[in-house]
């Protein structure tokens, strides 16, 4: 440099402002630029768009169960017999490991009664996400003759969780009842999931 700057010439406070502002902006932008790198991994719009499925249930008979796909997940639909409904109703709430209905169509704290698990006003119909709440396996019990477990509902082969006829966890490592997706009957024998 051609001219030397002495201590007196330095505008120290102005330098601080420049340093703090520059450093601050660089820091904020640096942190903000991490967000796109993280958020790119989240489900994108195309995954979210596949969010509703319509199912025709007119062919189903009492005691029959079918599995349909919704958002890449299996949905168990069971048209329960009167015995299965009665078995679900007979259980006192105090015997359930998970006392909440886990029904997306009801308030979060709705109790896990058979009525709250089943379709509104159509208690024989049970519609739920067929994924074990332990580690995500698909429980057995849909097909005729498959293992329905000790409680006549579903049995998870991975780690031995047992569900009753209302899809509620009764025994084993799973912490929650199988979840009920948001759905509604759009006709007598038609439902829309999602």
């Amino acid at each position: 440099m051609s001219t030397s700057i002495t201590e007196d010439d330095e505008d120290v406070s102005r330098r601080d402002v420049i340093l703090i502002t520059a450093g601050g902006f660089a820091g904020v932008l640096g942190v903000a630029s991490i967000w796109p790198l993280l958020d790119q991994m989240n489900p994108d719009s195309s995954a979210q768009a596949l969010a509703t499925t319509e199912v025709d249930l007119s062919h189903m008979e009492r005691g029959q169960a079918i599995t349909v796909m919704w958002r890449g997940k299996p949905i168990f639909i069971r048209y329960r017999t009167d015995d299965e409904v009665a078995a679900g109703k007979d259980v006192p709430l105090s015997e359930l490991p998970d006392k909440v209905a886990r029904n997306a169509n009801l308030p979060d704290d709705a109790p896990a009664t058979d009525e709250n698990r089943a379709a509104e006003g159509k208690e024989p119909w049970l519609v739920m996400i067929g994924i074990c709440t332990h580690l995500g396996c698909i429980p057995d019990g849909q097909a005729p003759g498959s293992n329905k477990g000790e409680f006549g509902g579903w049995f998870c082969p991975c780690h031995g969780s047992q569900y009753d006829t209302a899809g509620r966890i009764r025994k084993g490592p799973a912490p929650e009842n199988m979840a009920i997706p948001p759905y509604a009957f759009t006709g007598d024998t038609k439902i829309k999931i999602g």
């Binding site: 993280l38 991994m41 989240n42 489900p43 994108d44 995954a47 958002r71 890449g72 997940k73």
Partner: peptide
């Protein structure tokens, strides 16, 4: 888990 999957279940992403 959905962030890890990039969807609502294990899939292409």
């Amino acid at each position: 888990v959905q962030w890890i999957w990039g969807g609502y279940a294990v899939g292409g992403p």
